[in-house]
């Protein structure tokens, strides 16, 4: 375990595309094991910010430090789960997990792959190809493929927003269950305020472009949370107000 107080340190990140300033100086820290949700209006540069933090894009200024060490590119240490998903359609469920494991030094990879397919409730679908699965099942494959390499950080960029409302709720509950079994630091980007309240320890609200952190809310409610809880409702109102609704 790291002795550094912060798992992720985002320090003065700024990014422009041509004349368009998208991210305008964002700084925050994420503690080890903390679940931080970032909400913001659509088109505010949330995904750009996430891609920079995960190492897929370069910032114009500012630094990202993981465990106090400056980050230069993507790493197996932090796996990204995005809206469109990136499960390889030409590999079976099992092959997708084995692909992820191929770069690692885990012992008995077969057993690991099997365990994580079971964890997400896909036992029996090992040999299925992604196009034979539903959207919800595909999300489970993606989560299993991310977790199987034991990343310390999960980056989730609107992970469930391509699913229907019911499946999205179900996946949120599933994710919470899995996170109770395995400790991860999670950074979640979402436009769904209720999803953020249901899952996160802390919620950051972003401003419109060029985006900066506008406010931050601590969510001090035990899991499993109920959105009907008056505290949750109060928090929801406050966040929506910040978003200008």
């Amino acid at each position: 375990m790291s002795t550094h107080p912060h798992k992720i340190t985002v320090d003065g990140i700024g990014k422009s595309f041509g004349d368009l300033s998208v991210v305008g100086g964002v700084s925050f820290d994420v503690r080890d094991g903390e679940f931080v949700a970032i909400v913001g209006p659509s088109g505010c540069g949330k995904s750009t910010l996430m891609n920079i933090i995960a190492g897929f894009e370069r910032a114009d200024r500012g630094t990202i430090r993981i465990d106090g060490v400056e980050r230069s590119g993507p790493s197996r240490n932090g796996i990204m789960i995005s809206q469109q998903g990136s499960v390889f359609p030409w590999l079976t469920v099992h092959e997708n997990l084995m692909f992820a494991l191929s770069g690692t030094r885990h012992g008995d990879k077969e057993a690991r792959a099997h365990r994580y397919i079971e964890l997400v409730g896909l036992a029996g679908f090992e040999k299925a190809y992604p196009h034979e699965l539903s959207g919800g099942m595909l999300k489970r494959v993606e989560i299993a493929r991310a977790l199987v390499v034991k990343p310390e950080i999960l980056y989730m960029d609107e992970p469930f927003s391509a699913l229907d409302a019911l499946m999205s709720l179900r996946m949120q509950t599933e994710l919470r269950r899995i996170l109770d079994e395995e400790r991860h630091t999670v950074l979640l980007i979402t436009h769904d305020v209720e999803e953020a309240i249901f899952l996160a320890d802390r919620i950051l609200v972003l401003s419109p472009r060029p985006t900066v952190i506008q406010t931050s809310f601590q969510v001090d409610m035990p899991h499993p949370r109920k959105l009907s809880d008056p505290r949750a409702q109060e928090l929801r109102e406050a966040i929506l107000k910040e978003l200008g609704l």
């Binding site: 790493s75 995005s82 990136s86 992820a100 191929s102 770069g103």
Partner: peptide, 16 residues
Amino acid sequence: RRYLRAAANFGVSRSV
């Protein structure tokens, strides 16, 4: 690009 990013994310070897 998302597939190439996923491959980069998992840090697999060039041959894989």
